[in-house]
Design a protein around this nucleic acid. Structure first.
Lengths: 348, 348
DNA sequence: CCGGCCGATGTTAACGTTATCATAACCTCC
DNA sequence: GGAGGTTATGATAACGTTAACATCGGCCGG
């Protein structure tokens, strides 16, 4: 029996051809225990300076890379934050995730992005994929979520920050701006500058529709009629914008302003206007949303609604870190409206 | 002594306020061992159908989410693939990562993206962040890497696929296109269409410079002189493109074509031409690179070099999965040139 | 009717780290 | 000069999972 077991051992032994260096290896190399090696690398103030140096040298020599699976399992802290971003890799969110990453990194957390595949993959798989890695925090960016997702995230007790726009019922924490206010402000902007025949070119996603509704409400208040409207399938492109202006010009006799749900659409409108020799802004005002990188450099430069992505990223990180540090927080501080600005450029 | 230990236990007990359900909990609920519960969820064909059903029901009831830290630690397979993407969230890579994600997902792997912060964060931190999570595979996308990075990745023995463009010495596997061929092809394209005074507007990154060098080489072969050149700091924007054309027009008497290192630059050139009433393509041909979403819809639509991101993603996944399945592979199959196409549109 | 095999399940021991407590050496202060 | 504290380190036991082997019926063929 004992012999059989030994024989098995011997057979099994060479299975492992290659093993990463572990703390045990590092400790052995430095002449200390694995525990001391761990402390030396992670919290050097707890060990003698000379020991710390020896351990660091050993780690370097063995090319030791801490196994964070094991660390996370043991300490129940993964130092991992997972963000969900649309798989379009929309540069709209570039500032946001960049700032988020920088702030989290400064506090020792790592950020990884998971792609939300719009409708393609089942949402429960997404949640499993995320929760299964046991992140310390979750950031949702430009993501529509079902009640099911909401329920499962709440149940997980992992801190969640939703970002980008302000929804009615946040899951947990929330940083963004109000689409209603944007729609209202855009309408006011155009009317206050003397436009009387405003039209809309909007994508059919819920956020764009929120802006649309608020835009229309203000028009009603001011007793101005909508001169035309085109709704396009999200995600919207410049091509949609061109087609939309073409249709508007054919349908509406009078038309002196277009508010678009994205800068891409607005850019398309601009190109179509150029192709048809409709002077912008003299005969037609164009207003976009999102302040894409290109928008400042079109001809004429595009007037648009800008959202401060860096600020959203920073505030999201702040909220998340506060929670992770176990700070008490007021109800009020769980939700933040960062507002927006209208950048007046050449198209209005 | 024994009493002291028991007392400690009692004191320590209520420390854990909340615990996720584990396989032990699921097993208990279903009346089986943790191991059987694991098998029932992971490889149901190994357990009795009735048992599998009971375990699934128990898992559902307890909202069990498998802990992949523990799973990965135990099995040495994390089913995780980490990709590094530029923090600009360049939509250029959207197709690539989308396809990559889909293909990997279909084989049970998860894809997460890490942001490469360009120069900002130290590269060893990036590597630690990635290697520490013990992914089964790594995909590098649009990333320049140092010899140090290369060394550490090789040492980790984790399969690595570099994507997007073909470099001289791949770390491991490689899928992309040749910048040299692009530069050559662009020059030929313009000359073959009768342009005689070509100029360049290029970013200063190494890839753009590779295209530039090949472009110049072809010009030499054909005994054509470069009519002008502007180099801009990466990442390049449409604003840079406008400025570049302005400078070119001031400096060069004759100028009938511009090849840009990105569609953003080309778009800027287009806008500047429109602002200065230089007719495109009659007086000036413009050619971009990258086939941005907007490029098909500019006025006139932009002629550009298109790279098939979806194909790159698919091939990268294929290579990675083959390696993960332990297939033998030929040297040749470790590197793949997917080529590119020149989309003739309205600007040449 | 028994040896061997198969199918279903259980037991044990990793995986690599950190939390927690133990220990031992060295101070320090009256 | 010893009680009490501090500092540096070690030993042990988790963390939740899966690999590897063990076990235990039942079934089949001779």
């Amino acid at each position: 029996m004992d012999r059989a077991r030994r024989a098995r051992r011997l057979r099994a032994a060479p299975r492992q051809a290659w093993r990463d260096a572990t703390l045990l290896d590092v400790g052995r190399e430095a002449g200390v225990s694995a525990m001391t090696a761990s402390r030396a690398l992670h919290r050097p103030q707890l060990v003698a300076p000379e020991t710390a140096a020896r351990v660091r040298e050993a780690a370097r020599k063995l090319a030791y890379v801490p196994n964070r699976l094991a660390g996370g399992l043991s300490s129940r802290r993964s130092f991992l934050v997972l963000a969900v971003v649309p798989s379009t890799l929309n540069p709209t969110f570039a500032e946001l995730v960049h700032t988020l990453q920088a702030e989290l990194h400064a506090s020792g957390y790592q950020l990884f992005l998971g792609l939300s595949d719009y409708a393609a993959s089942r949402e429960d798989e997404l949640v499993d994929a995320i929760l299964g890695r046991r992140p310390d925090g979750i950031v949702l960016t430009g993501v529509e979520h079902s009640p099911e997702l909401r329920r499962r995230l709440l149940r997980s007790r992992i801190p969640v920050v939703e970002t980008w726009d302000l929804g009615p019922r946040p899951i947990d924490m929330l940083v963004g701006f109000s689409n209603e206010k944007v729609g209202r402000a855009a309408a006011e902007w155009l009317l206050d500058r003397g436009r009387r025949y405003p039209a809309l070119v909007m994508a059919d996603d819920s956020r764009a529709q929120a802006r649309r509704a608020a835009f229309l409400r203000l028009l009603e208040e001011r007793r101005v009629r909508l001169a035309g409207e085109v709704v396009v399938r999200a995600p919207s492109s410049a091509g949609d914008g061109r087609g939309a202006l073409a249709r508007l010009l054919e349908a509406a006799r009078k038309l002196d302003a277009v508010f678009c749900s994205s800068d891409q659409l607005a850019m398309g409108v601009l190109f179509e206007a150029a192709a048809r020799r409709v002077p912008v802004p003299e005969r037609l005002a164009v207003m976009g949303f999102g302040n894409a990188a290109i928008s400042a450099h079109t001809h004429p430069p595009l007037t648009t609604v800008a959202v401060d992505g860096a600020r959203i990223g920073r505030e999201a990180a702040r909220m998340l870190l506060a929670r992770l540090r176990g700070r008490p927080e007021s109800r009020r501080s769980r939700s933040l409206d960062v507002g927006f600005t209208i950048l007046e450029r050449g198209t209005t």
